[in-house]
Amino acid sequence: MGKIIELKKVNKWFDKFQVLKDIDLEVASQEKIVICGPSGSGKSTLIRCINRLEEHQEGNIIIDGTELAENTKNIEKIRAEVGMVFQQFNLFPHLSILDNCTLAPIWVKKLPKKEAEEVAMKNLTRVQIDDQAHKFPGQLSGGQQQRAAIARALCMEPKIMLFDEPTSALDPEMIKEVLDVMVDLAKGGMTMIVVTHEMGFAKEVADYMIFMDEGKIVERAKTNEFFENPKSDRTKLFLSQIL
């Protein structure tokens, strides 16, 4: 399996404050990676750099053989291949769930409307909200909205899915329905990078765990090792606080 994501010595600053420090990361196709760490450690910024919602100032980010750089066409091509799910869902409130899912395939991938709708219904069925397809986002519960957002990203048929704390804005009883969808997705062989505090989910699906603190990757380990035998003291402290 080849490398699909490659980060080399990535540095990023917000003004004077350095948020990412010398990040090196390689992700193979179909690997699932969970990133955890205290708030402000740069986890969200890291995955937002992967589809260039944030710009990095130094280093290289190479996605599926294409380097992320100034070239706008490259960026749009990569974004179409990298799906992203946000903490706040970010569904388009003026469009029905179905239109949310078909908009980008029709206008970016130039799919015929009919085909786009078929793909959308297939993905909505997969996340089990096909019966809500004609409602507007405002009429759905948080869990349903987040599943719709996942379906919307899947409709672009991405090679990689990024999840930025997908369950942090949800009521506790809705977290499971979203995690179930994500587990199903992982079993289907999707390459996934997930920022989350749901350690149960991490143990179930992650191939690798990454622990970040103060903009650095402190520890990168196989999931079992990470939880049973963490190497650095910082990781031990973090795990003792959340487990």
Partner: peptide, 17 residues
């Protein structure tokens, strides 16, 4: 909200779309 811009961009839409 900024999220609307980010969601649109993350789906591969350019400035005009």
């Amino acid at each position: 909200p900024k999220g609307q811009y980010e969601a649109a961009r993350s789906l591969g839409m350019g400035y005009w779309r």
